[in-house]
Structures are given as C-alpha cells and as structure tokens.
Design a protein around this nucleic acid. Structure first.
Lengths: 275, 275
DNA sequence: TTCCATGTAAACATCCTGTGACCGAGCGAA
DNA sequence: TTCGCTCGGTCACAGGATGTTTACATGGAA
C-alpha cells in the first residue's frame, strides 16, 4: 500500500477554499464533567482531542502538533503566568484559550497581554467554547498552510500540491487542474470511492444522474499515468462501485506468455508532448 | 521542472497593509459613554480610532484600511447577522469584535460562526476590550510578512523592498506600487498562488468573483519584466489555478534547431539562483 | 447469450487567460 | 481653477485550453 497517508486535507473543492483539516486540540484541565462534555462535542466535530491533567512542557506541546490549547489556570498552579507566557512565545502558531474560574479584570488583561487568544470564564457552554476555539484557530490558519502542501510519493509518481502537478522521474505529467484534483483526492484515500463521492468532493456539488465526467477524467488520468509510469497501475476500477487508488507494480506478460502470437495492444500510440 | 524544492518560505507574504505599527480601528456604536472611555484609552495607545454611529457598507470599510472593527449589534438593527457575515466575508483580514448588550449563547455562537473574532458583553471594561482587540489584531498580524528589507536577486532582476522597486542591470523597471507588491509577493512564494490569494494579500480584502485585476497586473508586470530581461521568463501561468514565480532562462529557438533527430526535452534548464 | 457498467474517442460547448482600449480618481503644475 | 499626467481598475474581444456530452466499443455478470 502506499506509504503513510496523513490525515492531510479533506478535499479541495475546485474553486473554493481548501477544506479545513481537523483541529488538533489539547485541554489542560481536571474537571471530569467539563472534559466529558467537551469531549462529546469535539468528537462529533471530528476534532482530535487530548486531555492533560497536568501542564506539560512547551516542547512536548510542540511535538503534539496542536492547533489549539485550552487551559485552566487553576491546574497550572503558582507558575501559571510564566507558563502561559512561555507557551505563547514558544508556539506562536498555537491558539491558546484560557478557560478558568472567576477572575478579575486585571487577571484577564494580563492573560491576554501575555499572548492568550481568548479568556473564557467557567462555567461556560461547551458550544460557545468550541466556537471560540474555532474562531481562534480559523484566524491562525488563514495564512498558514505550510506542511499541508508537502509532496507525497506513491509508486513512481510524486504529487506536489504546491505546484498543482504530479511528476514521474522529474517529469511533469502535465495534468490539468481538474485532473490533478481528482488524482490528489484518490491518492489520499485508501478505499474505494464512489463516483458520486468523487464528483461531489472535486466539483463541489452533487453529480447529475448519468454523468460520465468522472469516468472520462479517470481515463485521461490513466492515460497520463501510463505514459509516465508504464510498469505501474494506479487507479483500479471496482465494477458497480467506483474507483480505488493504489500503486501496483505490474508483472509484464512476456515472462510467461508467448512471444509473438498475441495482439500487441495498440493503445500506446500517444506521445507525451512537452511544450 | 524538478520537483526539487524545499518548503523554505512557505507562508510568507506580502502584507498589503502599509502601517503595521498603529492599530486602525473603527467602532460602530452610539453609546456616548462607551465611545468616550474607549477613545481615551485608545488615544493614549496611539491607535487610530474612528466612531461610526451607523453601519457603513463593507466597501467603505475596505477603503478605511482598518485592522479592527468593534460593533454593537443593537446599532445594526434587523439585518445585523447578514451585515456581520458580509463584513467578515469581504474583509477576511479584519479583526471583528462584537461588543453588545446581554445575549443568549445561541446568539454568541451564531456571531462567532459567522466570522467574528470575539464577542464581548456590555457593560465591559475598556481595558479588557482593548486587550481583546489587540489579541485579535495580533493574531492577524502574526502571519503578515516580516517585511524583510534585504534586496533579493532572482534571475536577472533585483528586488529592493527598501526602494519599492525592482531593477535589471542597474536599471529601474519603473514598477508602480501595486505592480511591485505583486512581484514581491510572487517572488517570495515558490508555489502556485491562486488569484484569490494574491488579491487578498495585496489588496487586503477578498477578491470579488470575476475580478480580473490580478491578470491585468500580471500582464503589466510581464511586459516590464520582458522589456528589462528578455531572455528570461518569470511569471508562469497555471491554467485554472493561478500564477507561479520562477526565473527561467528561455532557450532561443536557434539552439533547439535539430542537431539530432531526437528532441531532448528542454525542461531541465532551470538554474538555481541564489540571492 | 443479454444487459448493463465501463473504456474510449471525438465532437462540442464553456471557461480561462492574454491583450489592448478605455475611464475616472488623484495629483502636481501652470 | 484647469490641464495634463499617472495609476488603478474595468471591459470586451479573441484564441486557446479545458470540461462535458455523446456515440460507440468492450467486457463483466447473470
């Protein structure tokens, strides 16, 4: 199977924004009820969620690759301000939300000045807290899309989201935007995708009954993939279902077949034209 | 081209805002006391501050080049949600803080979901509100370009941020401000930039559907670049996606005549340019 | 076999982009 | 003030690239 598929991007609708990937969130808190409620809501949103009962070192937080951190100052104890400051300095890209018990204006001001993105007073509604987290993450993410764009290599081809293009042996496959989007989508899921699903995620709206667009694009993709990487097959048809992406090295028939008798497939007439 | 490219300066960008230092803030509110207190505090902070007693059109807000907007939903009246949404969509880079009277959780959730950065309930402390504004603005700015002033040379041209101008062979390209900003943005990104992205970073707000401004400026840029450095091509179109900057030495046709029968693919002519 | 899903290719319709012309706001000079 | 200029921005056109539809061939499943 293909190497390492991270959770990466959900889908990138043709013209729209790239779909937001899931939020990775940690909560430093000890209130079981609070954690429970939050957990429920977050789970249904598909967020990755982790509860910490004690403060962890900023380095550890870095390693967790979080988008957001919710923290109760009460859990931090005496060094809470310093901790808050260090975390904010160390992880400028992290959305930090302080969610703690009653506080004075001066405390809230201090927290915000140290770098917190928001201050929520307990008790609070989970829904509202989540909205606040989302708002903070949304802002942080606006201009950031660094490692989402990392190149992926599957079989002989390399997919480069930053260039909207795929390559085989340093050579561009010359994919059009649509073709690339479909290839990217397929390459990101290991399961069979129904045509309707592909259409919806790439085109951004529902597929009309009887539309063959997906088939046509799959054909074009296969053609270009075959031209660039003849030994491999990447897109597999599941009759009556849809398509599945998986790089597979094909064993040439010559090994076991007759040398001449059989039909030489005539489908290889195209040339790869480089502008 | 070779897929070889580090993620170097992934998200870098060319801000569009001029004054990075002072906050430019507008407040849509009618409470004299509130405005007065806020005004005092903001004045001492050196923020540029403007009070509006009625909602103004998003276009007007665009023209005001704001960093932040504080709004009382009560002043907006019936169409407040729509207004909020429109403003947030049109000015994705604007920090929007709703500061209004008592509200329900559902209302606050709605506001935040529509794009507000924070929701503050009146009455509130000016100091705290200001901190919240600052936190929101801070988040926005964190991603804006560090404005590195060092000159960069790419291909035959030299970009001088300190002079807001580009040169080829000591000769100015005579770029206008907009042209320069676009060139700078493009040259700092080594990936394909979608038009919407370019527009948003340079103009500072969302691109209207169907706007061709980016294309036109790219054309003007290419014209000047070609005039100053005819052998090179710098801005490449990615059909259906956007533009990408990469200096490429173009091979005159004479060379590609036909010394040998086979056409050697000419795509590997890139040079690694160090600034 | 027959039916239907899929592969294939080409014609067709649309969309995208490059381009030049044009217009109005802003500004400095006369 | 008016004139003349620059600059940002819009428009419409044209050609080319791309997406969509259609028709037919192929091949799997009952």
């Amino acid at each position: 199977m293909s190497p390492e598929r991270s959770e990466a991007v959900a889908a990138s609708p043709a013209s729209g924004q790239r779909a937001q990937s899931r939020i990775r969130l940690a909560v430093i808190d000890r209130d079981p009820g609070f954690l429970q409620v939050l957990s429920n809501r977050l789970g249904s949103l598909g967020a990755e969620y982790r509860a910490l009962s004690t403060p962890v070192k900023p380095e550890t937080l870095v390693a967790m690759r979080l988008n957001a951190l919710v923290v109760d100052l009460a859990v931090l104890g005496p060094g809470s301000w310093e901790y808050l400051e260090r975390v904010c300095l160390r992880l400028p890209g992290l959305a930090v939300i302080v969610c703690t018990g009653p506080s004075s204006v001066a405390q809230r001001v201090r927290g915000l000045r140290l770098g917190a993105d928001a201050w929520v007073t307990k008790p609070c509604h989970a829904e509202e807290l989540i909205c606040i987290i989302e708002a903070a993450v949304r802002r942080h993410r606006r201009h950031e899309m660094p490692e989402l764009d990392s190149a992926v290599t599957v079989g002989e081809i390399t997919i480069r989201p930053d260039l909207y293009q795929a390559y085989a042996n340093e050579l561009s496959l010359e994919l059009t935007a649509r073709e690339f989007e479909i290839l990217q989508l397929l390459s990101q899921s290991d399961r069979v995708l129904r045509r309707e699903e592909i259409y919806e995620r790439v085109w951004g709206y529902a597929m009309a009954h009887g539309d063959r667009s997906v088939d046509v694009f799959v054909r074009k993709l296969r053609q270009k993939l075959r031209a660039a990487s003849p030994q491999w097959s990447y897109i597999h048809t599941h009759f009556g279902v849809g398509y599945r992406f998986e790089p597979e090295l094909e064993i040439p028939d010559e090994v076991a077949a007759r040398p001449v008798g059989d039909e030489l497939v005539a489908g290889d007439e195209f040339e790869t034209l480089v502008g």
